[in-house]
Structure formats: structure tokens, C-alpha cells
Simulated scan of single mutants.
Amino acid sequence: MNYTLYCVGDRGAATDEGFVLPFLVLMAAHVLIVTVVILVAGLWSRLRTDPPEDSPTDVVEY
């Protein structure tokens, strides 16, 4: 199955833009969007968590 992109110019002439370049551009855009969403979610969850508190211990082992 081949999905070819056809573009229409200013004068109505259809041009064949092929398959690979539009596919790679869309794939790169999706990968970039997913990467940004994952990074923002990771940073947001990291900033929201409280740091662990050091609990004083009464038992000292020697």
C-alpha cells in the first residue's frame, strides 16, 4: 500500500510529492510531541513530590 501526497500549486497544477519525505516529517513531529509530553510529565511529577525527610533514629549500632 502506498500513500502518495499530491499538492496543488497556485495555478491548480497537481504535483506528486512522494511518500517518504511527508511520512518522515509526520513521524518526526509525532516523536517530538511524545518526547516533550513525557519530559514535561516527568519534570512536573518530580517537582511535585516532597523530598524524603530524615527521621532521627534512637538506635545506634556499634
Results as ranks from 00 to 15, higher is better:
D50Q: 14
A29P: 00
L5F: 05
L24H: 05
V20Q: 09
C7S: 15
S55Y: 15
G9T: 15
R11C: 04
R46G: 09
P56Y: 07
F19N: 08
H30Q: 06
Y3H: 05
L24G: 01
D10L: 09
T57G: 11
V8I: 10
S55F: 15
L39Y: 10
T4M: 09
T15F: 14
L39I: 13
V59P: 00
R48S: 12
G42F: 01
V36M: 12
V40L: 10
F23V: 04
G12R: 08
G12T: 01
I33Y: 10
V40P: 01
D16T: 00
L21K: 09
T35Y: 06
M1N: 05
L47A: 09
P56V: 14
E53F: 12
F19Y: 11
M1S: 06
A29M: 13
L32E: 02
E53H: 12
M1D: 03
V25Q: 15
Y62K: 10
G12A: 03
V31W: 12
E17N: 06
A29G: 13
V60N: 02
D50C: 08
H30E: 10
L26N: 08
V8G: 00
V37W: 13
L5P: 00
P22M: 03
A14S: 09
A28C: 14
E17Y: 11
F19H: 11
D58W: 12
L5D: 00
V25T: 14
